[in-house]
Nucleic acid binder design. Structure first.
Length: 270
DNA sequence: ACACGATCCTGTAAGC
DNA sequence: TGCTTACAGGATCGTG
């Protein structure tokens, strides 16, 4: 489910419930997700006050007044549920707040992760150290992309999914941005003109910004007790639309590389 | 060094 | 209807 916009929306939803509250109960319900969950997580977080929440790439950060920051990744199927009606087999971490809310990290496939770092050193967290810039940040530009893609023989689609080049993009928004910029997903990454890289960076920013805005508009849904409603927009141009019409009039195709689907329009994406 | 496929796990939906 | 198969928004690891 979660790429950058979904994590951004999730963090905003969590912030409204968590910020300023005390974690009165912290209950990991299994020892690991993708990786082991720190054994002292309960002890370090119980009784702490949540001071702030933030996002880095597809990770959410929950900072406390004890100098610890809980870092979560939602993997493919993770989400936070607020005041769920019942706790099931896939609710892996429960947080109870001094306001009486119960939060649950639910992740059936368990590709997500949970970790605890010292707040003054979160930037040294291993997954962050080799990660490229935020696509919505000031460092991300056509000039940056040109430098990062220089000499790369891999496809532009694979390059944009590589978190070392730019962090936070996933399969959906890469497909969408490439369609918006009219660039073929199979085009060699190192051989795209600077002008087209400009269109691509614009498209990436535009699609992410629109998705965050749409997510924000459904925050109420996200925070519903059942948590069942999707919290991101499904206004996709090409993703999941094989056989349908592209805005240009062409027919959207699907191809699979490395087990992952790519949706694109062969008529307008060159 | 780089590029690519296999892999972790479960749920859902399509196909026979 | 029921069983089997394909596929899913991620990221890492091993191999060529």
């Amino acid at each position: 489910m979660p790429e950058l916009p979904e994590v951004e929306t999730t963090v905003a939803g969590l912030r409204s419930v968590l910020e300023g509250t005390v974690l009165t109960r912290v209950e990991p319900r299994r020892a690991d997700l993708r990786f082991p969950i720190p054994v002292d997580l309960r002890q370090r977080l119980t009784g702490a006050t949540v001071t702030s929440l933030a996002r880095r790439a597809k990770y959410g950060l929950i900072e406390t007044d004890r100098g610890d920051t809980l870092i979560f990744h939602l993997g493919m199927s993770g989400r936070w549920r607020i005041d769920p009606a019942e706790i099931g087999a896939h609710d892996h971490l429960l947080l109870e707040t001094s306001d009486g809310h119960l939060l649950s990290l639910n992740d059936p496939r368990r590709f997500g992760s949970l970790d605890l770092v010292r707040s003054d050193a979160w930037q040294a967290y291993a997954p962050f150290t080799r990660m490229g810039p935020e696509p919505l940040g000031p460092e991300f530009s056509a000039a940056y992309l040109a430098r990062a893609l220089q000499g790369k023989s891999t496809s532009i689609k694979a390059a944009l999914l590589d978190q070392r080049i730019v962090s936070g993009l996933g399969n959906i928004y890469v497909c969408e941005a490439l369609n918006m910029a009219r660039i073929s997903p199979t085009r060699e990454a190192g051989r795209i003109s600077r002008a087209r890289l400009g269109l691509l960076t614009d498209a990436i920013r535009e699609v992410l910004t629109a998705a965050i805005a749409a997510g924000g508009s459904t925050l109420r849904d996200y925070a519903r007790p059942d948590g069942e409603l999707g919290y991101f927009s499904k206004q996709w141009r090409v993703y999941g639309r094989e056989g349908e019409s592209c805005a240009c009039g062409g027919v959207i195709r699907r191809r699979v590389d490395g087990g992952r689907s790519t949706f694109y329009c062969p008529k307008c994406q060159k």
